[in-house]
Amino acid sequence: MGSKGAKKTTRNRLPTSKADHITAYLMILPAFAILAVFVLYPLYMAVTKSFTNWSFYGETQFVGFENYRQVIRNAYFQKSLVNSLKFVLILVPSQIFLAFLFAHAVKKLTGGFGTFVKVSIYVPTVIAGVVASVIFIFILDYRAGLVNQMLKVFGLPRMAYANNPLLATIAVCLVVIWLGFGYNTLVFYAGLLNIPKEYYEAAQVDGANAFEQLIKITLPSLKNIFVLVSINLVTGSLQLYDIPYMLTGGGPAQTTQTPMIYLLNNFRDMSKNMGLTLSGAILMMIIIGLCSSVVFRIISSEKSMDA
């Protein structure tokens, strides 16, 4: 990543002696070996096996793109992709909106109270998806959960998220948002701190109102942050697993089944062709890569319009 430029600007390197070449290799060896064995080799394995009908039983044969054709045509895989799209469309804008908005409030807070708020909103971020799911299963319980008992007090109908596709989706999103909110907010907050005050002062002198300042100063200045957060959120939403698995098990009627739940269910079913499951996994890598680059393009081009 820009190693050429970095080299010139930070000439922070002393000449390395011959013997130190060996030191260097020994120092990168553990990290490199682990990445090679547990990341690159599994990728190679997934790619090559995805072109075969490999399973726990029987001979392995090369089948070309047959697995890809089948998995793309598979109704459950298709449905999981649609669900994923649904999660991306709900989770990415809503999380960005909430975090961006609240970051402005956090910026206004000073001293001990400011620290208290920053620390408090970050606490859920360190909680496991499994624990968060269990807490919300408890809170959303149909009979005795906090939410439904409150609804009853106000004379409203109780919500059975387990049987209702819309509510199930909302429940999953609620947990995801609760878990990620603090981190996203602090990232936006960091971005806001970094915009020079003089920009806003100059704009005020020019008579720009709050909305104009937002469009002309804040949004363009935070372009990189928007790229970073959006790509994180898109790739995260496409790989959802723990939370829908615990909360709804992918139901009702597969409406919250994500590609990862689908692939792992498929994988556990020993009779299924593993090549098929692996081709699904490779397709997901391509989809995640494409979505990230689309997000990157959209946000980058928006900046060039302003500049």
């Binding site: 990543m1 990445l35 547990f38 690159l40 997934a46 096996k49 499951t277 996994a281």
Partner: peptide, 23 residues
């Protein structure tokens, strides 16, 4: 070597999960 290391950043966990298990 640096490029190879950076490359691993772009490989989603879910893509290599199953083959890692097999490995």
């Amino acid at each position: 070597l640096w490029r190879i290391i950076i490359l691993t950043m772009y490989i989603p966990g879910m893509t290599i999960l199953i083959s890692s298990f097999v490995l």
